[in-house]
Each structure stands twice: as C-alpha cells, then as structure tokens.
Computed example of a mutant assay.
Amino acid sequence: MRRRGFVAALAGATAGVTVPATGCLGSRGVTVLSAGSLAVVLDENLGPAFEDDTGTAYRGEYYGSKAVMRMVEERQKDPDVVVSADAGLLRRRLYDGHTDWDVVFGSNSVGITYNEGTRIGKRLRDGEPWYEVLRDADDGDVAISDPELDPLGYRAVQMFELAEEKHGLDGFKNEMVSKVYEEPQEPQLLAGVRSGTRSAAVAYRNMAVDHDLPFHEPPDELNFSNPELADTYAEATYTTEDGDTVRGSPVLYNATVLDGADRYGAGIGFVNYLLDSPDTLRRNGLSVPEIRYNGEVPEEVSA
C-alpha cells in the first residue's frame, strides 16, 4: 500500500474516534519526538491537521536534535516517530538498534534573527555586515542554542568559523563563542529576541517566519542551505565535550518510525502525512527538496 492509500486507510480505521487534546508523549495517539525548530509547524499546523484528517491524536515534544537522540538511546522517551534537523545525526545514533531507515523531507537556512528595536537589530536592518555587528554586541546579547544539545548550536559555531575564514576575521569564532548566550531549550531560543531583552540569535529561517521576526541570511557558503556546498560546510568542525567531532553539513530534516513503536502504523501514517504536506512546510519558512529515502524504507512510505 503506497503513501496516500495508507493515510486514507488510517483515516478510515479511526473514523468516529474522538480525538483528545494534544499533550505529552505516552498519551493516546501517535507520539512524535522532534527537533525543536519544527515545534510551531508541527504543533500548530501539521499535527492538528493530521488529527482532523485521520482521527488519530497527535502528541509532540520538541528538543535539540542531539537531546532527542540521547532520550531515545537512553529510553527516557519512547516515541513512535523521531524527527531530526541533522540527517546524519539520526543515522549515526539510531541506526543499528532503533531503526534502519529514514526519509529526508525538508531543508533550512542558518542566519541571524533580530529585534529591530535594539541597537544591534537596527544595524542589521540597515545592512551593516552581520559579522561586524555581532562582534560589537555585548556579552549575552546574542543567543545560540546549546551546541552540546542541538545541531543549530554547533552550526552557529561552524558559521562563525566559516565567516572567520571567508572574511579574514582573525579570532572571530572564539570571540563569538565566548560572548554568546547558549539557550538549552531550542524552542525558547527566540523568546528574548521577541521581547527585546536580547538583540539577536543565530536561528533557522523558518523560526524567524514562525515568530514574525526579521531574518538576515548570509550567503550560501555560510548558511548550510545548499547541498552542493557540502564540502565547504565540512571545512568547519565542532568538537563536543565528550570528544565527538562534528563536521558542518547541509541542513536536512529527516524522519523515521522506531522499531517496536507502540503505534507503528500510526507512525507510518504521520510520516506519510508529513511527506504529503510540502505546501505547509513552505508556508512555515522551510525549503522542500526532492524526497530522499535512506536504508530499508517500508513499502508503505515509498512514493
């Protein structure tokens, strides 16, 4: 049974079922543990639409993708579906034990989201080079997500490194790392920017769209959006506290259903629904490349 037929069958199987409100993992319905950058599009758009169309409740929780992988590995969470903002991270951490397949469904761009009412924000709005503006920021005035927990965090550090090389900014990466605020909860990264208590944050484009904030997008060789520049991105690295060195890579979102998921069929149905919703993803600031399948993808997910 192919994608569309599977989702239709899921809807028929749950016809007449009352869908409870969304909530925490473990409640009735399909459970999704996802990269925090997708919190708005999943929790406010795709999740409710999936419920309406299939009669299957949606349950989502959102963290940095590294934290998501750790929660699955350590059995802190037991979701049906896992969604990552770093396709390679999911494969390295969850293959050979939790799943043997994934599907890439979206991409993104890394840049600077800012508050126009702040000193730093006004300079970014006026078109000054972002690296000069951020270099002049006060300690803690620019936020990144925690690179120990989240690909967006280590991509921020890698972007600083790439900019240092491209623009001849001696010491720029280390200077920025020493002064930024590291937000441990990725969905909260832009809270201070919205309120004006922080001037800017290194964020994904879709996060700026979600929160109606301006976004400065560096050129492709710095923003991790172009798969054709994978070798350029890989020149920048981040080494975690436990000694794992991560090379820069294009932003690619992927999803899988875990082996032994409590509601495996509903999980497959949600992944299919995600693949069949490119317009929703685009409206929320994501790019939608051609769907890519990796590993032993179930027949029900193949196009």
Rank of each mutant, 00 (worst) to 15 (best):
L258W: 02
D136G: 12
V257S: 00
Y293D: 03
G47V: 14
N254K: 04
R2K: 12
M1R: 13
A234D: 03
Y253H: 15
Y273C: 00
G55L: 13
E235A: 15
D138H: 10
L229R: 02
V41M: 05
D86T: 02
L213E: 12
G5W: 03
A261P: 00
S178L: 05
G12Q: 14
V81N: 03
G140N: 13
A13C: 09
A9K: 11
V17N: 13
S145V: 09
V297A: 07
L33F: 15
A137G: 04
G106P: 03
P219Y: 01
P147L: 04
L89A: 02
E74A: 14
R292I: 06
V81G: 06
C24N: 15
E175H: 15
L152P: 00
L162K: 10
V142R: 08
V251P: 00
P147T: 05
L213V: 14
A255K: 01
P227M: 01
V81L: 11
E44A: 15
R292N: 05
R205G: 11
T18P: 05
G295W: 07
P214I: 11
Y253E: 04
G248Q: 06
A87S: 15
G117P: 04
R263H: 14
G285P: 09
P187L: 09
G121W: 01
H211N: 13
G29E: 08
A236T: 10
D100R: 09
A200T: 12
H167I: 10
V104F: 01
E228K: 10
L222D: 06
Y63A: 15
A15T: 15
G55D: 13
D276F: 03
P214A: 09
M207K: 03
G248W: 02
T14K: 14
A49I: 03
V83P: 09
S199D: 14
V246M: 09
M69T: 12
T22E: 14
E221K: 07
L90P: 04
V246A: 03
I268Q: 02
V104E: 04
F160A: 03
T54Y: 08
E61T: 11
F270N: 05
A208E: 05
N45C: 10
N294W: 06
D138V: 00
A67P: 03
S84H: 09
V246G: 00
D220F: 01
G168V: 15
E186R: 05
V7S: 06
A208H: 07
D53L: 15
D126F: 07
F224W: 02
I268C: 04
S107D: 07
F215Y: 15
D86L: 06
L190V: 12
Q185S: 13
A21T: 15
G121E: 10
D210K: 00
P219D: 12
L281A: 04
G127A: 06
L90D: 04
V82M: 07
P214S: 10
F172A: 10
G260E: 05
A11F: 01
N284D: 11
S249N: 07
E299L: 08
T14Y: 06
R155D: 00
Y253Q: 05
V180P: 03
T240G: 02
L189D: 02
N223C: 00
S199H: 01
A39S: 15
A208W: 01
L281E: 00
A57P: 08
Q158F: 09
L33T: 12
G196D: 04
P129T: 13
F270K: 07
G23T: 12
A15H: 09
